[in-house]
Design a binder for these strands. Structure first.
Lengths: 141, 141
DNA sequence: TTTGTAAATGCAATCTGGTTGCAGATATAT
DNA sequence: ATATATCTGCAACCAGATTGCATTTACAAA
């Protein structure tokens, strides 16, 4: 996927594909990890953090990305094309305590859950903490 | 349970049962919900927030309470007496989008999950968002 | 192309939750 | 009674998130 493809993705969601937005979307598309606002600030030092904030907020509203509370702040990652938008938002992230990366896990790891009588679920945030595969390998050497 | 009982609970965990600590522990024991630092600040305006912060940190270290990232910040709640401390910390909270209360759910609602190859879990945070039973009833009137 | 309007951006300021240093108050042990 | 360690309040600080405002940029109509 190139910048033109990104532009049409944005446009299809009713977002004007400005240079900054393409930069941010491109980075988020390239990395398989969830990123925080300050991650993006470091990767794109020429952008103001308010621009990054507003861009992430916009992408989130238009369901291009999703955000979830993580260990110490919000992290965002690209929503799969085939990930249909659903009123019941569920997010499943793995936070590696060694390298600090946050991975976006497939929702299938979550099985159904039994809530108490009268409780209605709208969404859920599943955050697993531990050591990721990459760091496990490093440590074993 | 009265203040004397609370005092011995604290002492058994190696915590000196000062007046402030008994106040905080008493409130956390009385409510079935998870509370944030600022919740406690409002309930105990005579205490300084640094005192509340240090007390919660201490209780948490000694495993009298547990804390979990919630919608917008940390929330803490009493650890059951029979809730054995476990290296794998898991927390399951329900955040009501209507009244803002956070309930501490039984861990049994969580079923086992399948992580990708090489990932090691140390703990998890399960946050369900929705409408609690109390608010569901209110709305239906 | 020129021009008018709406959207996007950068800058600075603000807010909130969390955290720390320090000095005075309080408790505990000798 | 005194020495020592702990606890507490105050004020300051920090980071992440958020907003107001003035300027710039993009887009569309003439």
């Amino acid at each position: 996927m190139n910048n033109n493809d990104f532009a049409s993705v944005l446009q299809r969601s009713g977002i004007r594909p400005t240079g900054n937005r393409l930069l941010i979307y491109g980075i988020m598309h390239a990395t398989q990890n969830a990123v925080s606002m300050s991650d993006l600030e470091h990767m794109l030092p020429e952008l103001d953090k308010s621009t990054i904030f507003r861009t992430l907020t916009l992408f989130n509203e238009k369901h291009l990305i999703h955000g979830a509370e993580d260990a110490g702040g919000m992290k965002y990652c690209i929503r799969d094309n085939n990930e249909v938008f659903d009123a019941d938002e569920s997010h499943c992230h793995f936070y590696c305590e060694s390298c600090g990366k946050t991975y976006c896990l497939d929702k299938s790891v979550i099985s159904n859950l039994a809530l108490p009588e009268g409780f209605v679920m709208h969404g859920l945030n599943y955050l697993v903490k531990g050591i990721c595969a990459e760091c496990t390998n490093k440590e074993s050497c």
